[in-house]
């Protein structure tokens, strides 16, 4: 199988994005690099990055596993809930 980027992989999945509400809120100004790195290492969808001193996170493409909640709730993650029904990722295999 040819190597695929994470973006390519997420592109195969089906999402109904909630355009108005982010179900995960991050503290963009959080500046403990070790903590931010833990999220960058852990997120299966690779949605976390750190650019120009700011935490960059995009909830579109979230697979709703909640790894970030377990890793960093109360630190980088200000609040975490599932998307409103029936929005978010929609698995057809699972």
């Amino acid at each position: 199988m040819a190597k695929m980027t994470l973006d390519d992989k997420l592109g195969v999945d089906r999402f109904k994005v909630d355009e108005h509400n982010a179900h995960i809120i991050v503290d963009e100004t959080y500046n403990n690099i070790d903590e931010i790195n833990r999220l960058i290492m852990a997120c299966p969808a690779g949605l976390y990055s750190y650019n120009d001193g700011k935490v960059d996170f995009n909830y579109e493409g979230c697979l709703e596993c909640g790894t970030c909640r377990v890793v960093s709730l109360g630190k980088v993650i200000k609040s975490w809930s599932y998307p409103r029904g029936p929005l978010g990722v929609e698995y057809h295999h699972g």
């Binding site: 199988m1 195969v12 999945d13 697979l63 596993c65 698995y91 057809h92 295999h93």
Partner: peptide, 16 residues
């Protein structure tokens, strides 16, 4: 690699 050669990704998922 040889077991999945020629395969096509149908879904990428994550769960705890």
């Amino acid at each position: 690699a040889p077991l999945i050669a020629g395969g096509e990704l149908l879904e990428y998922s994550a769960h705890l």
